[in-house]
């Protein structure tokens, strides 16, 4: 089966879905490769090359370049979604959600509920998350916890190219607003990806690795760090069950709970800040529903409660590392009541 990068997988998902359904449009900054600028149109295919080729194939009525105004992009996309189109809007950096959150959080997320189910909002918002590029405090955050906390929004955080394609197609076919988070350091990560279109159901976790000693729950780039830690821990005789929820809303609670029922130990790895977050949410779920199974305290390995530092050495300290994950696992594994 062909190996594809996350960038290619996302591009393929968009192109295949746009061929299937003429109601699908793409809207955002530079999605047509920089309209109005000099040089060849669609030379870049978006700042990350994800929308490359769409403008040429589908034209400017379906691939809409916008000015730098997130509130207009999200407002137009939300309106288009309730009136019959199926927009895939791009919020280049998720850090910018602040300027367009009314359109997302108070409008798109509420339509279906407030119109008594008579309106649907088939809107996908693709957006970049993640630290690690010295992009500083305003371009390095991972605010999926905030999106997850909003009823009416679905939130997808893929960790590999196979999941990225299937989940983006599911997002596009979904009738509710979906925030689709892409980690900015993972676009070149490759995996086997079928050429055909396929879907992955929301709310179904992937079990990356089977083990009976400690459960780790992780998202996006942290899945790979946790896998690295698990590899090292296996040599010490500690077998990790690594769970990648893939979607934070809806959340596959059953897979996490069933795993902790068996292992009795839980470590959550999250690149986001630790307060009112994905990590606290999973910790609360397990404390609530699987308390009797726990043999050790739940441990969270997260970023500290600070802005993301610009300094490369501080940023490295900020992001959870395989070493920190392994240390947390050893702590819960060796815990004696």
């Amino acid at each position: 089966m062909p190996q594809k990068s996350i960038r290619q997988a996302l591009n393929e998902a968009l192109a295949q879905e746009m061929r299937r359904d003429p109601r699908i449009i793409v809207i955002g900054e530079d999605v047509a490769g920089g309209a109005g600028s000099e040089g060849q149109r669609d030379a870049y295919g978006g700042v990350l090359g994800v929308t490359k080729g769409l403008f040429g194939e589908f034209g400017e009525s379906r691939v809409i370049d916008t000015p730098i105004t997130e509130s207009a992009i999200m407002g137009a996309a939300a309106g288009a979604a309730v009136t019959g189109l199926r927009p895939v809007a791009e919020l280049m950096f998720s850090d910018f959600f602040g300027v367009c959150f009314d359109q997302i959080f108070n409008q798109a997320a509420k339509f279906r509920y407030m119109f008594g189910g008579k309106a649907t909002t088939p809107l996908v918002i693709r957006t970049m998350i993640g630290a690690g590029r010295s992009a500083a405090a305003q371009h390095s955050q991972s605010p999926y916890g905030i999106f997850t906390s909003v009823p009416g929004l679905k939130c997808v955080v893929p960790s590999n190219a196979y999941d990225a394609k299937g989940l983006l197609i599911s997002a596009i076919r979904d009738d509710d607003p979906v925030i689709f988070c892409e980690h900015k350091l993972m676009y070149d990560l490759r995996a086997e990806v079928p050429d055909e279109p396929y879907t992955i159901p929301f709310g179904e976790a992937n079990i990356v690795r089977d083990g009976d000693d400690v459960t780790i729950v992780a998202l996006a780039r942290m899945v790979h760090y946790a896998a690295e830690a698990a590899e090292a821990l296996a040599k010490e005789g500690i077998e990790i069950e690594l769970i990648d929820p893939r979607t934070t809303s809806p959340l596959d609670e059953d897979t996490i709970l069933e795993s902790v029922e068996r292992t009795g130990r839980l470590v959550i790895v999250d690149e986001a800040t630790p307060r009112c977050s994905f990590a606290t949410d999973i910790a609360a779920l397990v404390a609530d529903r699987a308390f009797a199974a726990l043999k050790a305290p739940i441990r969270r390995v997260t970023a500290p409660h600070t802005p993301v530092p610009f300094s490369p050495s501080l940023e490295k300290l900020y992001i959870p590392s395989p070493e920190k994950i392994a240390a947390a696992v050893r702590e819960v594994y060796g815990y004696a009541k």
Binding site: G166, P194, E196, P197, Y198, T199, I200
Partner: peptide, 8 residues
Amino acid sequence: LRYKRLDG
């Protein structure tokens, strides 16, 4: 499951 998820 990967097979069953393919369109068609």
